[in-house]
Simulated assay, not measured.
Amino acid sequence: MTRTAFVFPGQGSQRVGMGRHLVERWPDLVDRYYRPADDLLGLPLSRLCWEGPEACLQDTPVTQPAVFLTSVVTLDVLGRHGVRPDVVAGHSLGEYAALVCAGALDWQDALALVRLRGELMATVNDRAPGSMAAVIGLAPSTLEGICADIAAATGLAVDVANDNDPAQLVVSGRTEAVTEVMRQARLAGALRVVDLNVPVSFHSALMDGIAADFAEALDETAFRAPSVPVLSAATAGPVTTAAEAAAVLRRQLTGRVRWTGTVRNLTAAGVDRFVEVGPGRVLGGLCRRIAPEARVRTTDDARRLDQALGAVTAAVV
């Protein structure tokens, strides 16, 4: 029996025009989601999603609510066609949409949290300039050792931030330390090392400075126990209570994204189909590499959305 996981993307999946294919076919989505989102944030988020400019869409306080909102609207469309997940998970920012899908969080509450998260993250580089880099082809233990040695030698924060697939890791921290990790990773035999063009050192100890402010916002938000099974990429384990839902959002601010372990645990639980719900196709690619035997569908444009709907609804029937 087929078991379907909805997986929700994070920052990096944004593009100008995202979500436009949805409102062109279902115009009521504008009044249902986009106008309320614009009003809630005091920001022309809908126009930025559909028209850009790209420079604004790349700004973290805009990027995060834009990606989140596109995922929630896509989720609505899937629901209209009777497509429901057996389990959900999200990559970093995507955990907010996963919790909305699971009924643990109202979408407007999640949108406000995501906007605050982006705003707080954007302030970190002003105090402690950081960067991120992707490392391809090194074992996690090797890269962890390099990070630990450099952090000890320099006193600068740097660590593995993302375990994206069996070959791809991401490091995050102070810029000077990340640069040295890149150099030593090449010497250690990494197949490829890429300096990532991101404005914030996500999932690093540098985020400690905003953790208290964000925890306060989480404490003021209403969470519920999930009504659909959830696996958190912060732990690669299940989220079963309202308290756990809030806790993983707090933990992931500074903690590692354990996507490889999350997908492996999903497949171990019988998931054999992944539907990436939202903009981009990055997460679908990671799922294919981690679980090559699974079927993967994306929803980034009209053609792919139709293919996903056709494949999933045919299987249900």
Rank of each mutant, 00 (worst) to 15 (best):
F8I: 02
G12E: 06
M18G: 01
W26M: 06
L29H: 01
V30C: 07
R35C: 01
P36G: 12
G42D: 02
L43W: 14
P44C: 13
C49L: 06
A55M: 12
C56R: 15
T60N: 11
V73N: 05
H81T: 07
V83F: 04
Y96R: 09
A97T: 14
C101F: 12
D106K: 15
L111A: 13
V114P: 04
R115F: 02
R115V: 07
A139D: 13
P140A: 05
P140R: 11
G155F: 04
D159I: 11
A161Y: 08
P166I: 12
L169S: 08
R174K: 09
R174I: 11
T175P: 05
A177K: 14
V178R: 10
R186A: 13
L187M: 04
A190F: 08
A190Q: 01
L191E: 05
V193K: 12
D195L: 12
L196C: 08
N197D: 14
V198M: 09
P199R: 08
V200W: 00
S201H: 05
H203G: 11
S204G: 07
A205D: 10
L206M: 03
D208M: 05
D208V: 12
D208C: 09
F214M: 07
A215I: 11
R224K: 10
S227A: 14
V230F: 03
S232L: 06
A234S: 07
V239E: 00
T241S: 12
A242S: 13
A243C: 04
E244M: 02
A246K: 07
R250H: 13
R250A: 15
R250K: 10
R251F: 11
G255T: 09
W259A: 15
G261K: 03
T262A: 13
R264V: 15
A269Y: 03
D272M: 01
V275S: 06
P279L: 02
R281W: 00
L283M: 09
G285F: 00
R288P: 03
I290E: 06
A291L: 07
E293P: 01
A294M: 01
V296F: 00
D300V: 05
D300K: 01
D301L: 03
R304E: 09
A314Q: 15
